[in-house]
């Protein structure tokens, strides 16, 4: 599994290819938002009585009076220098706002993705080694249930059970104001807040990875080179975890990468249910407030994240599988 020098070149080329893609995404975002009903100025003014002159002044202030192509050009040229505008609602530069919410989302998603992928893979392997037993059927049933459960509903069930009735975990947020604000106390506090939202997040992904892994592993264990490994006296544990697992896990890598995008989309629901101060909740607040700059900035950042994860997925795949040719 040596890293070939062409790998760096490949990564560079993939990054370069991503640039026009990002540009197209920015275009689509721009027109999508402008096609949406509602006027941000109305929302800003709210129920206050406002003169037409005052509204006109606001429009000029935010550049909303300019023709669409001009607005687009200004938006694109500003994004190029990471200026995504100013949030009408939060009264803060959008890029700064998004970056302040990024760590919370990455922590939640990262924890959920890593834990559910590892657990899903291990459970899938275990089930594949003993197919058609009672345990296997039970696990498949549970996985199917987890796979079909809506995230917001599951989140609320967990809240009712573990926070309200059992009082084991906090109901919302990422920190307790009374907890220490640094050191181990802080880490423990955040971890405590993390459990339920991460669990909610994990269930669907875990079920997906488990089901796929079980099938792939069963297929792989029946392949010829696995028989070769057994015939040369490789212990069964090593047959499974060295010879078969690396082969069987390849398609799972692709699925985990793809699922990253779905999880980002799902973050709106989970973060809203648990009041987790991340990008998903920011998106929800942005939609409620018709906060165009925030929404457009978020869409762009989320798209870039998905593109990056896709590239990372392909690189991981290429590192595991020597047959992949970089083009």
């Amino acid at each position: 599994m040596s890293l070939r020098p062409s790998l760096l070149l490949y990564v560079a080329r993939r990054l370069l290819q991503a640039v026009p893609l990002v540009f197209v995404i920015i275009l689509i975002n721009f027109f999508l938002i402008h096609a949406a009903p509602g006027d941000p100025v109305d929302f800003l003014v709210g129920t206050m009585e406002a003169t037409p002159e005052y509204l006109e002044g606001l429009r000029r202030e935010f550049g909303l009076d300019q023709p669409l192509p001009v607005q687009l050009w200004r938006y694109v040229s500003k994004i190029a220098v990471l200026d995504m505008g100013y949030s009408l609602r939060f009264r803060q530069p959008v890029f700064e706002l998004i970056m302040s919410r990024l760590p919370a989302t990455l922590l939640l998603m990262g924890t959920a993705l890593v834990v559910s992928s590892i657990v899903g893979i291990l459970l899938g392997v275990a089930a594949a080694r003993r197919p058609h037993t009672a345990t296997d059927h039970a696990a498949t049933f549970v996985a199917l249930a987890g796979y079909s459960m809506p995230v917001f509903w599951l989140g609320q069930l967990l809240l009712i059970a573990f926070s309200l009735h059992l009082n084991w975990f906090p109901t919302q947020g990422m920190y307790d104001l009374r907890a220490p604000s640094d050191g181990w106390g802080r880490i423990v506090d955040v971890a405590h807040h993390l459990v339920l939202p991460a669990l909610t997040y994990s269930v669907y992904h875990l079920a997906l990875v488990y089901r796929l892994m079980r099938v792939k592993m069963q297929e792989t264990l029946a392949l010829d080179y696995v028989t070769t490994a057994r015939a040369k006296g490789v212990p069964e544990r090593r047959v499974v975890y060295v010879h078969a697992l690396r082969n069987a896990v390849l398609p799972i890598v692709t699925v985990i990468g793809l699922n990253f995008g779905f999880m980002l989309a799902g973050s709106v629901l989970t973060e809203t249910v648990f009041a987790w101060p991340g990008m998903g909740r920011l998106l929800y607040e942005g939609i409620q407030g018709r906060d165009y700059p925030v929404l457009m900035g978020l869409f762009t950042c989320l798209s870039v994240m998905v593109i990056l994860v896709n590239i990372i997925t392909d690189v991981v795949y290429a590192v595991i599988d020597p047959r992949v040719v970089y083009r």
């Binding site: 392949l223 010829d224 028989t227 070769t228 057994r230 082969n247």
Partner: peptide
Amino acid sequence: MRRLRGGDIAMIFQDPMTFLNPLM
């Protein structure tokens, strides 16, 4: 039995295309 396999008794298979691990 495992110690014997590939030790005192070894096996050569039919299809060299599928009996080698592609990732090793």
